[in-house]
Design a protein around this nucleic acid. Structure first.
Length: 592
RNA sequence: GGGCCUGUAGCUCAAUUGGUUAGAGCAGAGCGCUCAUAACGCUUUGGUUGGGGGUUCGAGUCCCUCCGGGCCUACCA
């Protein structure tokens, strides 16, 4: 039965190129899931965007010597090109600075205000005269009153870990300019009264018993820590952002202020869907059927992917915005969260130039190498680690030896004995299926269970387990060849060898289809070499084993005798020891 | 300080939620194959599940404690 699945990946911040840890923590597994669900015939809406507002964006733009809007537009293009390079199949890669998001963010704020969930709070914040801006706590540096560390930040001292208030610091200065010309000013901000919705949120989270522990434990911690869920400031004194308005109306007293990025960023999931519709010239119904349960989204399953640092905003703040609107907007059904990927014994570090960033990765090797390694090592249960040795070993063994060489040996053998057409002779896959000890029977029995498990893991977003199962399915091709040894059989019985090879060529087609969510380019190269038109997943209408076997038999008959193919270039080259050493030195950065 | 996660073979990870003798891949060893990218297949050596204590007929799994690694702690996003 066809389902409708809405998938969002946490939106990457605009101020620079993301590293492989960012990629594997949300966008890449989301893409895997989106591709799989499309392949299974479901209707998918896969949304991502750049998160463009906030102080770091302003500072990065200033550092680049550009107006912030221009800087963001350029960086959006850079990130868009990289996501294309990694074959991330977003239906829309939007921008949180879009007019659509501006209006929608202002709309939600208005709804929340109407429902009594916004509170105006006057507070005192540090203002830097030299920088001409209010400073977030962590952009203030000074001497720690507790331990005397001279580079303590306004929120916490990194040396003694004591939590601080900016006014606690001795000799405070701006971390941006170093200026000590600071003063405390009164300023008014809007707070989202999340505390009003604590019980509602708690009940909702509690009901999600099938979510990853990582997701629910973080949410529960925030709900129950101290006095419980706290209200959250959702505005800032900045120039760059969504101007504070109550719907279409001005918000008296809030002139010149913008919404806090974490208020408008999740709303961009919705707005980006409108960007998608607008870009295609579709009407509002086209996007609202994904987001309004009263306008067609009641049958949508909504899945979010994110790194663990994003969990509080997706389990609490954004749901509070949705629930607090009092309108039937679609709430998330499942949150798949990830731990961090570390780099060779430490963390990825932008400032230290440590680790591999998305642009660098693509300059070294094609996307499929990275996709395969990252997904098959996704940090699902705990932080995981990238090492060059592991990367080299996995890529060479899994991709070159197990998969690439299998395709190579089959197609080259077929060409040398029968020419570049699928050979005829021997029995059919359907006949084999009912005859024990035949190649077709052996192959179907060997992989049927693996494919069932693979599909189950993909459904459940068990990324590493799915990769592991897929590898087994690749390896079964080599086991099959060893079992039936067409190179020996051919000497005595060319027809029997033709039959073995025909099945093998068909199995390659099946592998390409099953592997597509992980390694789309390689799959495309295989399907292209085999002149395959029909790239549909296995066809079956129930989970019954007999049904599955029938579908497999059908799939293994897809390329008929006489069908022309070509031998593809080697699908994967091996990563050599020399280049591995060179790369590990090049990306080591400054060791701490 | 508080909370959470985590520690299983040399390496990367499993273990149907307390149930036979803790399993895979890689690396190592042996044998086989010769179609293929010196690739592939089969067999096989590796574990006192971080240490100690407890509950139980039964513990990798639950409890206590110690040791190690990591994350979060609400104005970075």
């Amino acid at each position: 039965m066809m389902e409708r699945i809405l998938i969002t990946s946490a939106i990457p911040y605009i101020n620079g190129i993301k590293h492989l840890g960012n990629l594997v923590g949300s966008q890449l597994p989301a893409d895997l899931y989106a591709r799989y669900m499309r392949a299974r015939g479901h209707e998918v809406m896969f949304i991502c965007a750049t998160d463009e507002h906030g102080t770091p964006a302003e500072l990065a733009a200033a550092k680049a010597g550009k107006p912030v809007a221009e800087y963001c537009a350029e960086m959006w293009q850079v990130q868009k090109d990289l996501s294309d390079g990694f074959r991330l199949s977003f239906d829309k890669f939007g921008r949180s600075s879009s007019p659509q998001n501006r209006r929608l963010t202002q709309y939600f704020a208005g709804r929340l205000a109407d429902n009594g969930l916004i509170e105006e709070v006057s507070e005192r914040q540090v203002y830097s005269n030299a920088d001409g801006r209010f400073l977030p706590d962590r952009y203030i540096e000074g001497t720690c009153p507790n331990c005397g560390y001279e580079r303590a930040r306004g929120d916490q001292c990194e040396n003694c870990t004591k939590q601080l208030d900016p006014t606690d610091l001795i000799d405070p200065r701006s971390a941006i300019s170093g200026s000590t010309d600071l003063e405390v000013r009164e300023t008014k901000h809007l707070y989202l009264r999340q505390s009003q919705m604590k019980d509602q949120l708690d009940a909702w989270i509690t009901s999600k018993t099938d979510w990853p522990i990582l997701t629910t434990s973080i949410a529960k911690k925030w709900l129950h820590d101290g006095d419980g869920l706290r209200d959250r400031g959702i505005t800032r004194d900045l120039d760059w952002g969504v101007p504070v308005q109550k719907g279409d109306d001005v918000w008296p007293g809030m002139e010149g202020k913008v919404f806090y990025v974490w208020f408008d960023a999740p709303i961009e999931y919705i707005a980006a869907t409108k960007e998608w519709a607008d870009g295609k010239g579709l009407d509002d119904a086209a996007w609202r059927r994904w987001w309004r349960t009263d306008e067609g989204a009641d049958d949508v399953r909504y899945v979010q992917f994110m790194g663990k640092d994003n969990v509080p905003f997706h389990t609490l703040s954004f749901p509070a915005t949705i629930m607090g609107s009092g309108e039937p907007w679609k709430l998330v059904d499942y949150i798949k969260s990830f731990n961090y990927l570390n780099y060779d014994g430490g963390q990825f570090s932008t400032s230290q130039g440590r680790g591999v960033f998305m642009d660098q990765a693509l300059s070294l090797l094609p996307a499929d190498y990275w996709r395969w390694w990252l997904l098959s090592h996704a940090p699902e249960n705990s932080d995981s680690e990238f090492t060059w040795e592991n990367f080299q070993a996995s890529a060479n063994k899994d991709l070159s030896d197990v998969l690439g060489n299998f395709v190579s040996r089959v197609t080259k053998f077929a060409r040398s004995k029968f020419g570049e057409v699928v050979p005829e002779g021997g029995s059919t896959a359907a006949e084999d299926a009912n005859s024990p000890d035949t190649p077709g029977h052996w192959l179907v029995l060997a992989v049927s269970q693996n494919i069932a498990l693979y599909e189950q893991h993909m459904e459940n977003m068990e990324v590493r387990k799915a990769a592991n199962e897929l590898r087994r399915i690749w390896a079964a091709g080599n086991e099959y060849l060893q079992e039936f040894a067409p190179w020996s059989v051919h000497k005595e019985n060319p027809d029997a060898a033709a039959h073995i090879v025909r099945l093998a060529l068909n199995y390659i087609r099946l592998l390409a289809i099953l592997s597509r969510p992980f390694i789309p380019d390689t799959s495309a190269a295989i399907l292209n070499a085999l002149n395959v038109e029909d790239t549909n997943w296995l066809r079956f209408n129930s989970g019954k084993e007999s049904n599955r076997i029938n579908a497999l038999v059908e799939s293994l008959s897809a390329l008929p005798p006489g069908h022309a193919f070509t031998v593809p270039d080697n699908l994967f080259r091996k990563i050599g020891d020399e280049e591995r050493v060179e790369w590990s030195e090049r990306f080591a950065g400054v060791r701490a």
